[in-house]
Each structure stands twice: as structure tokens, then as C-alpha cells.
Amino acid sequence: MTISTAPVSEPVAADTPPAPARRPPRPGRAREWWLGAALVLPALVLAVLFKLVPLVRGVVTSTESSSGFGGSEFAGADNYTRMFDDPMVLTSFRNALLVVATLPVWIVLPLVLALLIHQRSPGWKFFRAVYFVPYTIAPIVVGIMFRQILAPDGPLNALLRSVGLQPLAIEWLNGRYSALFSLVAVALWSFFGLGVMTYLAGLATIPEETLEAAYLDGAGFFRRLWSVVVPMLRPTVAYWSVLCASGVLIWLFPLIYALTQGGPGDATMLPEYLVFLTTFQFLDRGYGSAIGIALFVFVAVLSIFSVRHMFTEGTRKPR
């Protein structure tokens, strides 16, 4: 709370003499700089204190060998070389790549649903409201909920058996690949509504007249979709794609925590869960930090495009 008071006190001083600010341009400009500096201060303090400082400390800790409650000593790149020989770490990053490979589904499925809703068939507002409901439920709650839904004798398998799909009624959370598949499917269940909402917002910016004109020119439904709607929706698709790319791994943590704990074996072990496990359960802080830094690099590479996109969006002058 102390931080937020800084900018409030500053502008009072900046406000009192408004008249002489006009004549000599330079002091006014300098004062505007000081005002700007004061305004960005709280955000800078937050970003530095809770993001950059921990990141730097993480890098430092990752070069130390420290475990248990004992002290720590400098270990150079040992923790990093150790990762390459650790099957758990390698599996976790391979699983992360598998998850990233599902990104097209994350991008296309909400788009299709948004397009269906956008047809404005009866009750479309109801569907729009209902699709967002899963997103409002906390991932940890979602995870615990789906532990029941996906249980061997749970409602999903009961449904599959009742419609004659007996062979599909498997132990969803207990197979080498079915566990990771279930995890991603539950995550998708939990987040698709946000995507639908984002796409609907983008669709709303397409003028009716444009579609009308294409319709009058004889363009069929799919032609209109492909030649008019999709190109005009590109910024929204880009925005949602970058959000998914930088978020998909992060969103999985509470689900792993509640659903699989990384198992069976290491089938659903992902880097973000491994960092948590190594640091707080095995108390191997140096190694945990090294895996954390590797995860940071992985996410940073994935989301570098989103940052570039956001930077140009935020600094571009309109028209």
C-alpha cells in the first residue's frame, strides 16, 4: 500500500502553477518528465521487486548446490548439466512439447464455436453465457471436480458404456498417454470459454454491410467465412494464439496438482510441476531453480511473439 501513495502526492505540486508552464517550454517539459517518472514508479517497483529480482536470484541460486536445510555452495553449471542426464527433466520438457503441439486445437475450437454462436440462431446469448461458465471456476476446483468425472466408475465412463462405446471406457487418469490427454482436455474445458468470448468480441467488429455485400455478390457461407470473416479476424486470432502459447503450460499447474500429481510414473510431469516438486518437496533449491530458469527460457521463446505484438499495439499511433 505504501507504494501507491507516491504518484498521488506528486501531481499536486505539478498542478498548482499551471500558468507559467506555457511560456518557457523547457521547464514544462522537464516537469512532465518527472510526472511521468512518478506515474510509472509504482508499476516499476512491482515489476522489479516481484519479477525481475526473483528472476535474477533464481539464476544465482541455480548455480549453487543446495539441498535440505543446509547451506549452499557455488556449483557453476553443475545443475544445468545434471538436467541433461535426468530422465525426469527430459520427460517433463518432452511432455511440454506434446502439450504445445495441441495449440492448434486451442486456437481453432473456440473459433468454430464463436462462429456458430455468431450465426445468431435462437438462444445464442444463452450459449455465449454458458460457455464462459467453466472459465470462472478455479482450476484447482476444476481438477478436483474432474477427478470424480473421469474416475473409472465415474459419469463419463458410465455414459460411454451406455451408448455402447465400452472399449473407450478406460482409466482416463492412469494410462501412459491417456493421462496427459485427459489433463489437456480438462484444461481445454476450463479455458475454451475465454477463447469464445475473445473471438466473439473480434467478430463483433466486422461490419454487417461487408458480409451483406459478399452475400449479395453470391458468395456462399463457406466462401464468406474464408474470404471475409477469417482475414478480418486475424488480429483477434493472433491475440488469442499468443495468449494460449504463453499461457497453456502455466494454466496446467493446478490441474496437475489436483488430478495426477505428475503421474502415473512421469506421464504428466511438466516442468512447472517439477520445479515445485524439486524445490518444496525434495528441498533441492539449486536444482529446482535451474529447472525454473529452463522453464522461463522455454516460455520466453514461446511468447516472444506475443510481447512484440503487444509492444507494437501499445505504442502505435492510431491511423
Binding site: K51, L52, V53, P54, L55, V56, R57, G58, T61, S246, L249, I250, F253, P271, E272, Y273, V275, F276, T279, F280, R285, G288, S289, G292, I293, L295, F296, V299, A300, S303, I304, V307
Partner: peptide, 10 residues
Amino acid sequence: TIPSQAIIYP
């Protein structure tokens, strides 16, 4: 780009 999971201990 800095997820909480990556820097959770520091």
C-alpha cells in the same frame, strides 16, 4: 514471459 512457476522459490 516470467511465469510464477519458474521463479517460485526466489
